[in-house]
Design a protein around this nucleic acid. Structure first.
Lengths: 184, 184
DNA sequence: GATCACATGTAAGAAGTTACATGATTCT
DNA sequence: AGAATCATGTAACTTCTTACATGTGATC
């Protein structure tokens, strides 16, 4: 059984929050602002199948009442696999190209990884995003003369994005460590 | 012949900048900060084939010297198709989920669409991104109590991203209209 | 009793990734 | 001669999308 796909991991994460059926998962995926995926049944049901076959989730409750419906929960191995996914250090490529997915991982971390790991995650993101800023600015400096206006705007947008994320990270990290000292 | 895929359109755009071979395109895709795709030959060569079969690009120069190598240029129909792609008004879904692709489209607009169209494009982006901010903030307001800290951080990151993009757009639009009045 | 929301699934196809294969040319 | 780079291509596989199919329970 191959490692779960991105969608598989996300479904696994949602099942950690509460037991859900495939139908529930589809609804969450559309109603959530983090929607990276479509709600196509042709993606979700096969993904659930594969998680089940890999032993990462189990049917918690089948067909209560008359209506056919099964809700899933993560197994112990599923929890371990999911936590491992969360703790996986982001690559530079993840940071420059898959930021929304990293934010989704962050959103799942509560209660599953230690606060110190969240801190480390955010720190890694910042060094990565800062490196990206440097890279983009070097590119701009090198090509400034050749870049026509719209292309330059697009590049500047990328720089602005990355700078904004770095600024957000400094605040988020401060806030995160503060709340760790004085929890609610 | 089906409509070109996203990768197909990007390749078409790169060929508008200058004639290139498949190998050249691979190099550009990796060396460019806008790299949304991998440089896998298994993606690029078939995409070129399909563009060629659709009559959107032509071989400009084959095997000069001894080494086998063909460079491609867009045909008239290819140019029309690409411009149509650029001018296509972004959907709300594009704006919330495919921003980097929209920036790539922006980067290709110079010389292919009228400056007024660039302006319209940027204006559309701003109404879309502002709507997204409103949506995310509504979600936050509604779920603030239930959201554990990391999940809340992730959501706030999305809001911060979108706000930053809106701010960038106001400046970019001002700059764009100014440079249109007094071109270099 | 017709229609809608619930709930799950499959079939066909598109598109990309990885990995391998194949040669030519240049460099040392 | 051997190695690295140039340059193109294919085969197998994975995954998602679209579209359809199927049936149940609730609602009007």
């Amino acid at each position: 059984m191959p490692a779960p796909t991105t969608l598989g991991h996300v479904l696994l994460g949602l099942l950690h929050q509460q037991p859900r059926s495939g139908y529930d998962l589809r609804k969450v995926v559309v109603s959530t602002p983090m929607s990276l995926f479509s709600d196509s049944p042709g993606a979700i049901y096969p993904a659930l199948r594969s998680l089940q076959k890999a032993g990462l989730i189990q049917v918690e409750q089948a067909a209560r009442g008359g209506r056919r419906r099964s809700t899933f929960v993560p197994s112990a191995r599923g929890r371990a696999a999911f936590v491992a996914w969360l703790r996986q250090p982001p690559s530079q490529d993840d940071i420059t190209r898959l930021w929304p997915l990293l934010m989704l991982r962050l959103a799942f971390m509560d209660g599953l990884v230690a606060p110190a790991d969240v801190t480390a995650f955010l720190a890694r993101l910042q060094t990565g995003i800062d490196a990206h800023v440097v890279e983009l600015e070097a590119f701009l400096a090198q090509h400034r003369a050749l870049l026509p206006p719209a292309a330059r705007l697009a590049l500047e947008s990328g720089i602005h994005d990355a700078r904004g994320r770095s600024a957000w990270l400094t605040r988020a990290r401060r806030q995160s460590s503060r709340s760790r000292r004085s929890p609610a």
